[in-house]
Design a protein around this nucleic acid. Structure first.
Lengths: 147, 147
DNA sequence: CATATTTATTCATCGTGATGAATAAATATC
DNA sequence: GATATTTATTCATCACGATGAATAAATATG
C-alpha cells in the first residue's frame, strides 16, 4: 500500500463528502480501493492535520488546502545528503545530483531558529545562518541525521 | 551505514590512491571509517560502474567523473509520485510538493524511447512524448511502478 | 593445467518504517 | 454517572532494501 496515495484519497474523501467518524472514512477509502484499518486512518488524520468538526473531518480553519507531506526531514537527509560544510555564516549541503529541492523544502519546514533561509540548486543547498556559530550548529544537526 | 556516503568514499579512495583489488578497497574504506565486507564493495563497484585497470579500479574511459546515483526510479516514483495523467502527447505527473526534480531526473535516466523530454516544476513533471499512444504507455508504466 | 586469488552471487539476517490487532484512553450519549 | 462509541497507542508482524557469511564463479599465476 502506498501511503501517499492513500493520504491523498483521505483528503479527497473529506473534501467531497461528510465524514463523521473514522468508520465512515474507512468506507470512503474502501470505495476508492484502499482496504485499511481504523488504526492507520487515525495516523493518517494526525499526519494530515485534520480536525473533527460538526460537519465531519476537515482541515483546520485558515488552511486553504492541504496536501500530502514530504517524508520526514531525517529520512530525506539520510537518503540524499552527502555532506554539510559550514563556511562563515553559510552552510553548503551537498546532495545527490537532482535531489537538492526536496531536502531544502524539508529543512525549511523545520523552521529552525538558526536558519535564515535556504536556496536549493541541483546538487547543493545553500543555507544562510545569522552567524558562524549558528551555521556550525545546523551542520552538526544535519551530520547527526546522517548517522 | 549510509550507502551514499560509503559509495562516495569508494569514489574518493579510487581517485586518490591505487586500489588493486577489493581487499585494498576494504582497507581504504576502513581508513575512512567504513567497516564493510567484500560482498558489499563488489556491489558498490557494480553500482558505480567502476572497472578494473592495470592501475587499479577506475572509472570507465570517457567518463569525466562519477557521482553517487539517485535511488532507482521505481523507488522515487513510489515515494513521491501521486498520479500520472496523459493529455494528448503530454503526460502530467503530479508529485508531492518539492519533489518533482529527483523524480524527473530518474525518469530521464531511463532513456525510454517513448519520452522526448521532461520538464520538472515544484510538484509536477511535464513529460513530452512523440504521440498520444506513447504518452499512454508511459503513464501506464508509471502507474505500474506506483503499485 | 592446477591452484591461488579475486569477484560475484546466494541465502540468511537485520534495520526501518508501515500496518493491523488488541487494548487503552478519550469523548459522546442518555 | 454508566456505558457506548470513537480515537489513539502499544505491541507484534510484515515488506523492503541493505548487508554479511558462505559459496560459486571467474580470473590470475606459475
Amino acid at each position: 500500500m502506498n501511503k501517499s496515495l492513500r493520504q491523498r484519497a483521505v483528503l479527497e474523501a473529506v473534501g467531497q463528502e461528510p465524514v463523521a467518524n473514522q468508520e465512515d472514512l474507512q468506507r470512503a477509502l474502501r470505495k476508492r480501493g484502499f482496504k485499511v484499518t481504523q488504526a492507520t486512518l487515525s495516523r493518517d488524520i494526525r499526519d494530515l492535520g485534520l480536525i473533527k468538526t460538526a460537519a465531519g473531518y476537515a482541515l483546520p480553519q485558515g488552511e486553504a488546502s492541504a496536501s500530502v507531506a514530504l517524508p520526514p526531514v531525517k529520512r530525506l537527509v539520510r537518503e540524499f545528503v552527502l555532506e554539510a560544510r559550514p563556511a562563515q555564516n553559510l552552510l553548503v549541503v551537498k546532495t545527490i545530483i537532482g535531489s537538492a529541492q526536496p531536502v531544502a523544502a524539508a529543512l525549511d519546514e523545520q523552521e529552525w531558529e538558526e536558519v535564515v533561509g535556504t536556496i536549493a540548486g541541483d546538487d547543493a543547498i545553500l543555507i544562510v545562518c545569522p552567524d558562524k556559530d549558528a551555521a556550525k550548529k545546523v551542520a552538526a544537526r544535519i551530520e547527526e541525521m546522517l548517522g
